[in-house]
């Protein structure tokens, strides 16, 4: 529903079913170059790629720009506000100094806040995605490689995880889990604990799709010659799977990654709306948007900017994911 995390499974299911025959590329001579070439020809994907790279560069640069004083997400300017505490001058108070205007109420620079907000939003969603992918890959490999009761147990754990209502758990667990994180794990209360909570919970509920795909891949790779060869040479089973099979899984993992990531960007925003994610004054796209909702009618620029930035990154990541998948698997999807 609302976090969009449900959607992620659709995209994956549609675009890359467990039976997707990745092995064809594995066998070809220079699959990477071929895929790259195909990718470069796909204009839409290239544009998405550039946008995604741009977001990441912006996210990386922001802390330095804040340090250097170029971005100023915390300084208030009540001289730029009218008696109703709306920005003076219309259009959200846009000016040379404040290209996206200033925040109603306290007059902080909106561009600085959303820019810096991208850093925190991407940091959270990227970490959560990495966590989900790591858990998913390990569970998938172990499950596919071991078979038998281990496979069955992991399968049940996946069923169990999927049975939990995700958004509901994210919200309901927050007070309990935050207390646990701060009091038992000793993480400082406030933003670090909240960020950790969001990352861990998104990761813990988001790995199942990855695990299923990886397991499928492992099952199909299991019968291939190089695996047999390694086995004959006496490689231990698990070592074999992680050493020999993992490198062959990078393609589906990459695709999955690009599809989970945008879902988690949306999820962070939804959690911020519910008051669960990092709190201001530290900006995230979600918590800026939460505040800006009140200004839908009176300060449209402020209302629209954070939502637009979220939408752009989500769309770009999804298109990028499509492009990567098409490039890697030109047969499947036109």
């Amino acid at each position: 529903m609302t976090t969009g995390t449900e959607l992620e499974s659709h995209f994956i299911a549609t675009d890359l079913g467990p039976e997707a025959p990745e092995d064809r590329k594995v066998a070809s001579k220079s699959p990477t170059q071929l895929a790259l070439a195909r990718f470069r020809k796909d204009k839409l994907s290239m544009v998405s790629f550039v946008i995604v790279v741009f977001y990441f560069l912006a996210a990386l640069a922001a802390p330095f720009l804040v340090q250097a004083g170029v971005l100023n997400p915390f300084t208030t300017h009540d001289e730029l506000l009218d008696a109703n505490t709306l920005p003076l001058g219309g259009f959200g108070g846009i000016s040379w100094d404040h290209p996206l205007g200033v925040e109603p109420g306290v007059g902080r620079d909106v561009l600085s806040r959303v820019w810096y907000g991208i850093t925190f939003s991407l940091a959270i969603s990227l970490s959560a995605t990495l966590l989900a992918v790591i858990i998913g890959v390990v569970a998938g490999i172990v499950s596919g490689a071991s078979g038998g009761w281990i496979d069955a147990i992991i399968g049940r754990i996946i069923d169990l995880t999927l049975a939990f209502p995700q958004t509901l758990m994210l919200l309901a667990l927050s007070s309990v889990a935050l207390a646990f994180i701060t009091e038992v794990l000793g993480v400082p209360a406030g933003d670090p604990a909240r960020a950790l909570y969001v990352i861990v919970v998104l990761g813990l509920f988001g790995w199942t799709g990855v695990a299923r795909i990886v397991r499928g891949q492992v099952l199909s790779l299991r019968e291939r010659e190089f695996v047999h060869a390694a086995q004959l040479l006496g490689a231990s089973k698990m070592r074999l799977y992680f050493r020999e099979i993992l490198p062959n899984l990078w393609a589906p993992i990459l695709v999955t990654f690009t599809l989970i990531m945008p879902a988690f960007v949306s999820a962070e925003a939804a959690l911020a709306y519910l008051g669960v994610s990092i709190h201001p004054p530290t900006p995230t796209l979600g918590n800026i948007l939460r505040d800006s909702l009140s200004y839908a009618q009176n300060d449209f620029v402020y209302f629209f900017s954070p939502a637009f930035l979220i939408a752009v990154i989500v769309v770009s990541f999804n298109l990028l994911g499509d492009g990567v998948r098409d490039a890697l698997d030109p047969k499947g999807h036109q």
Binding site: F74, T75, T76, E103, G105, V106, R108, A189, G190, G275, H279, P280, P281, N287, R290, D291, S294
Partner: peptide
């Protein structure tokens, strides 16, 4: 208690106190 308006109002308090030699962490 965190809320969008409170978050902003507390940020103003923080700014004033920081200028006076405090180092304020807001805990919504």
């Amino acid at each position: 208690p965190a809320s969008p308006t409170a978050d902003k109002a507390m940020a103003v308090i923080k700014e004033g106190w920081d200028a006076a030699g405090f180092d304020v962490t807001l805990e919504g």
